[in-house]
Design a protein around this nucleic acid. Structure first.
Lengths: 168, 168
DNA sequence: GTCCATGCAAACCTTTTGCACTATA
DNA sequence: TATAGTGCAAAAGGTTTGCATGGAC
């Protein structure tokens, strides 16, 4: 059904193949194709993005298979699942970039910028000491207006009460 | 349909009433009932939680109305919407507590602990300087094991590749 | 032959919307 | 009385699942 890939399998896809083999799971052309798309982009891809890119590449893979493969990619820790409150998930591979980074999300244009913060480590240490909590991962998202939108003079409406509320 | 509330309207609900009036929107018994439930709990409530509590209080209010009222409460900034990756949203009122706080989420028992962090402010200042970004709000969630689950000897399975990957 | 993946469609779940009816201001 | 809210049910949208088919070992 799926024609054999003409291009060689990329190193990252091979890593995914290794994960599959280690878990006794078949390495199929569909899984490789989905992984190839995810690893060849530095964007935060939605499932629709992935499906579109597959189609553009001549592959026609069912959504169910895409979802199932993404689940495997996330389990393998090679891919991270993101949720920017858009009503659907996005996927981002964790190779060739900082393994831990945070996101700046523009509430006007939807643009996402990544940044690294060492302060987060300090926070995690505090937390461990104060609550006896053992952190495994975290998510920091800062929402606001990006530089380009500020430059255009954009502003965000405030709809709260006219008079600020004192917290008791 | 809805019997008149026997208890006096709480101050927080009155605040919501003020918001509605300021925006030319009617203050209805349903809206007051939903607000009452949200303001009388310090939990992170799901829509089902809210519906259940309303029923327990003898109120039978349609889900659509609950959703529509929550939308108003969030717009008024009296209530914050939360998403802990459970597939649905939770709602938490912002009165009688720290207006800005972060969440510690136990991956085993699902327990949520709140904490405050001043470091976040420093991060936001960095970001503003470095990216020209104007932050309005943020979300920091730290996932891991809570003290009680650690005490019970719980552990989280790691399903990634057996050999850690070097980021290129 | 067994095991599992695939693809399609149906199911699922939360959330939103349309509409007839009702209550608010 | 005009305007907007309510409740029900249906729709929507993303994600998951059931099942028959098909490929790999």
């Amino acid at each position: 059904m799926i024609p054999p890939a003409t291009t060689a399998v990329s190193p990252f896809v091979r890593l995914f193949g290794r994960y599959l083999r280690e878990h006794g799971l078949p390495v199929t052309p569909q899984r490789q194709a989905v992984a190839e798309v995810v690893f060849s982009s530095t964007e935060h891809l939605s499932v629709d993005d992935i499906e579109r890119k597959l189609r553009e590449g001549g592959e026609r893979i069912g959504k169910a298979t895409i979802y199932r493969t993404l689940d495997l990619l996330v389990r393998s820790k090679l891919v991270a699942e993101r949720d920017f409150n858009e009503g659907f998930k996005r996927y981002e591979h964790r190779l060739s970039r900082q393994p831990e980074h945070e996101h700046l999300i523009c509430q006007r244009c939807g643009g996402v910028t990544e940044f690294k913060s060492e302060e987060i480590q300090a926070i995690q240490v505090h937390i461990a000491g104060r609550f006896g909590f053992r952190p495994t991962r975290h998510k920091l998202e800062i929402y606001g207006l990006c530089a380009s939108c500020i430059a255009v003079g954009a502003d965000l409406p405030s709809e709260g009460l006219t008079c600020p509320i004192e917290t008791v």
